[in-house]
Amino acid sequence: MPFYEELQGKYADRDVIVFNLYVREPHAGERGFPEIRNHESYEHKRSYAQKLAEIKGMETNILVDEMDQKVHAMLGDLPNTIWLIGKDGKVAYKCTWSNAEHVDEYLARMVNEDPAFEGMPKMEQTIFTARAGTAI
């Protein structure tokens, strides 16, 4: 998640808004999160999102999906997907997990209206990385 914080800060003056869509709690009760339980209500879910955001010092917009995961289902129901959407409201790029270098590069080319962006693959199945080093 800190990668998205980095993106938000880096592109703040480039008409970019970053949303984290908080969905179900996949790690409830696991080794590192013994106190975390599955969401029991929307308010319970929202309070977890708020608490976790405070713990991690997150500044990005955290949207809380409904209990039926309506928006998440619309986006494929997978964890850690990322979607870049142009000002025209169309999907410009999407990927499973988050290859930070790719996402950062794509976003830089998109906001700079770089013609090369058109020729780049617009859907990737990637592995997770977390460094955004592209110059903009």
């Binding site: 998640m1 998205y4 993106l7 592109y11 480039r14 008409d15 970019v16 808004i17 970053v18 949303f19 984290n20 869509l21 908080y22 969905v23 179900r24 709690e25 996949p26 790690h27 590192g32 999160f33 975390i36 929202r46 977890y48 999102a49 708020q50 976790l52 955001a53 991690k56 997150m58 917009n61 955290i62 949207l63 809380v64 999906d65 409904e66 928006v71 998440h72 986006l75 997978l78 964890p79 850690n80 997907t81 990322i82 979607w83 870049l84 959407i85 142009g86 000002k87 025209d88 409201g89 988050s98 996402v103 976003l107 998109m110 906001v111």
Partner: peptide
């Protein structure tokens, strides 16, 4: 149309023509 953790409502249409939007899905844990 979804609320953020502070209760503010966000709609996709609010950003049309104004912002590039990045959306990531998942848990925070």
């Amino acid at each position: 149309e979804l609320k953020d953790i502070h209760g503010n409502v966000h709609r996709m249409e609010d950003y049309l023509g104004k912002k590039y939007v990045v959306i990531t899905t998942g848990a925070i844990t």
